[in-house]
């Protein structure tokens, strides 16, 4: 995948993710609606490929204003990655063409790899995750299960222990995705399945959209590194 294609694909997927987020906020509090109306309009322009350089910059300003409005990200990790993607897109349009653009997209791709690896590492060093207790607690009393029926999974500790280890291994081994196109395909399919499962169980719909938007940078990075020749 060429650098230009990766940037354009990121723009398209990110704009879809931002449109989805913005529409959800139109039913929010009065003072957040203007911010998201702006974001909605800019995202439509980005999707259409109109003045992407300036639209990306305005989206970055909009992201800063939203950070100030909510005194941080509105919705945790999905918003953090949205901001990172917006910043990377704004930067990639304002750095000199060529190598600097590669550095920006490479940084974004590496952060996506880290998002999995560091998440796996921070789990495996905790005993509760290794024993499966952490996932039992997530289902039993955390705020995340999207329905009362989902809480019943807490009564299946062995299954949750196995699921917890599957998640930890997927996250820890994710850097291997950079080894070859085949490995990348397998890891992206597994990772997207993981995000979809998180949506079904915990209602994290925004994660699916935003992480999908980060994948073109990863596909480009794998091809650019070409580690196994």
């Amino acid at each position: 995948m060429s650098l230009e294609t990766a940037i354009r694909l990121t723009e398209i997927l990110l704009s879809i993710a931002l449109i989805q987020q913005s529409l959800e906020h139109l039913s929010g509090l009065r003072d957040e609606i203007p911010h998201y109306l702006c974001r909605l309009g800019l995202s439509v322009l980005l999707l259409a490929g109109v003045q992407t350089q300036w639209v990306s910059l305005l989206l970055f300003v909009n992201a800063l204003l939203l950070l100030r409005r909510f005194q941080g990200p509105y919705n945790g990790g999905s918003d953090l990655l949205s901001i990172l993607l917006i910043t990377a897109l704004a930067a990639v349009h304002f750095v000199p063409e060529g190598r600097w653009q590669e550095y920006v997209l490479g940084y974004l791709g590496l952060q996506v790899v880290f998002s999995y690896f560091k998440s796996g590492w921070s789990k495996v060093i905790h005993r509760d995750w290794r024993t499966g207790q952490a996932l039992v607690d997530v289902f039993e009393f955390s705020v995340y299960p999207a329905s009362e029926a989902t809480r019943r999974w807490a009564s299946r500790p062995r299954l949750l222990c196995a699921a917890g280890w599957a998640v930890i291994l997927l996250e820890l081994l994710f850097p291997l995705a950079l080894l070859s196109p085949a490995a990348l395909t397998i890891f992206l399919v597994l990772a997207m399945s993981f995000h979809v499962a998180n949506f079904v169980l915990f209602g994290f719909n925004r994660f699916v959209w935003v992480w999908a938007a980060s994948y073109p940078s990863l596909i480009w990075l794998e091809a650019r590194l070409d580690l196994l020749g």
Binding site: R68, G72, G77, F114, S122, D128, V143
Partner: peptide
């Protein structure tokens, strides 16, 4: 120069990516 915004932006540019590392007290 934007007051306080850099402090809010930095965690997004250099995220910790520690999802669900510790299942702490859950708020209601």
């Amino acid at each position: 120069s934007f007051p306080g915004v850099l402090k809010l932006l930095l965690p997004a540019l250099f995220p910790s990516w520690r999802f669900f590392d510790v299942i702490g007290p859950s708020p209601r």
